[in-house]
Write a protein that binds this DNA or RNA. Structure first.
Lengths: 258, 258
DNA sequence: CCAAATAGATTGATATCCAATCCTGCTTCT
DNA sequence: AGAAGCAGGATTGGATATCAATCTATTTGG
């Protein structure tokens, strides 16, 4: 809507969350300015927004990079997600909106269906959506935005630490959780949620993070400029990265308006 | 440290949290640029940071204002604080760090001492610190930063809705809370925390919010520019602009929404 | 007295320029 | 030859000037 830098921040955010930009990737102001056809200042404003959101780190006089959280920080993100949702459960105890549990059940059915079709990708999406629904039960927009931010940071971790989920067990635990809600066993539900997130965290494996410099154009579905990019220094791996993921889903327009 | 816009954002943040800038106050780019002796761009970057933090709102083509949360949003902030800390309590149950409860007790003693001297101001500070300590028990920096952000928004509310706390009861509840921790009655502690924050929220009273335009210089302890000595450095426009608004133009309400 | 037109001020954004810093490659010295 | 150090290029951080769009407020006109 308002503000070019906001749009650009959103676009870069999508690229990061879509794993088209990997942690550690350099986000050069000049490059991005060329890609988005705006001035460097707009880019810097976008990077500031992303830095405030925790998806980008800006090092003075060195530039902006996609955030590359340490394993310790990754754990902290999951613990924080755990605590926030445990707090939601505590509130559910105070003001039970049991009618809304049907939404959770519907989500579980969708996830089961996806699992039945062997579509783990889709099942994973529904798995994330379950937690969104849980938080949205509070109808607290402040909390929902906070949770969304934490989720973004968690999705960033997916591309840093390889994930290997046991979707079946995760789905079962969701079901168990709803059952506990139904029986108003909030303390047990909180404990289960904790175990649940520990299971999620165990799905992550440390991966050697040799982040090859990526041509930013690919991340934004830009046509690679005609002139061959200077691959002198680290170009060997750039070429590999170039073939790695030549396209990604994108429904945004990149230049021009109207 | 590094980054002028970061420093300036911090300074403006202090002014807002210190209630020297009131909700709804206009933060004009040119005015702030003159005050901090930087270009508008740096100011805008600072405002973007503050907007991401939730302390200012930026309206397109209208400018930046100190955020003026609605009563509904105020409630949401307190509910979110409640839930986050309830989540902390749930984690305390998993990994009890009972030794650290001594810090909480020490804080309570300090608050009692302040109350004994009738220093409600100081008691209020300790009351806030209690919740900081509670969160810091997790040693989770992600959560601590999140909590700090929520606290900032809560302090912003103080200047919008007049607060009138029953510090004695609040302190008693802190003590009760620690006792429940000691007895590992986590569910009860969560319930008490909820009541506690409801008591805090009840301390706020709606106040007619006719925010008169404030001379920003006062908020930053800047000498009011009586002499245009810095005319050479910043050009004539700055001096002219500074002279154009000495103080008492017309006391219109700068932002009305009804 | 109310409404339209207009002038002023502010924001959003660009381009250009400059200083400080970092990185890289080259030179030089041992 | 290898390491230390220096110079130059590249990048960031920031300043200034300028322009279009929009909002505000005043003035003008019916």
């Amino acid at each position: 809507m308002s503000g070019r830098s906001e749009q650009i921040a959103a676009t870069i955010c999508e690229a990061i969350l879509g794993h088209r930009l990997k942690p550690g990737a350099k986000l050069g102001e000049r490059d991005l300015a060329d890609i988005f056809q705006v001035s460097r200042i707009v880019i810097r404003q976008a990077l500031i927004r992303l830095a405030e959101d925790g998806l980008v780190t800006v090092e003075r006089n060195r530039g902006a990079f996609v955030a590359k959280p340490s394993l310790a920080e990754a754990i902290e993100v999951f613990e924080t997600l755990t605590m926030v949702e445990q707090g939601v459960i505590a509130q559910l105890g105070n003001r039970p909106r049991m009618s809304l549990l049907t939404e959770l059940r519907a989500n579980i059915e969708r996830q089961k269906a996806a699992l039945g079709q062997g579509n783990e990708q889709l099942a994973g999406e529904f798995g994330l959506e379950f937690h969104d629904l849980l938080v949205s039960l509070t109808r607290n927009r402040v909390l929902i935005e906070l949770h969304a931010q934490l989720k973004r940071r968690a999705r960033l971790l997916e591309s840093l630490y390889r994930c290997d989920f046991d979707h079946c067990q995760l789905c079962d635990e969701h079901e168990h959780l709803v059952a506990l809600f139904d029986r108003r066993q909030w303390a047990k539900a909180q404990q289960l949620l904790d175990d649940h997130y520990r299971l999620v965290a165990r799905g992550y494996r440390i991966e050697d993070d040799v982040v090859a410099p990526q041509p930013l154009h690919l991340a934004f579905n830009q046509p690679v400029p005609e002139k061959p990019a200077d691959l002198s220094a680290r170009g060997k791996k750039a070429a590999i990265a170039a073939r790695y993921r030549p396209n990604g889903k994108s429904s945004h327009r990149i230049k021009g308006e109207a």
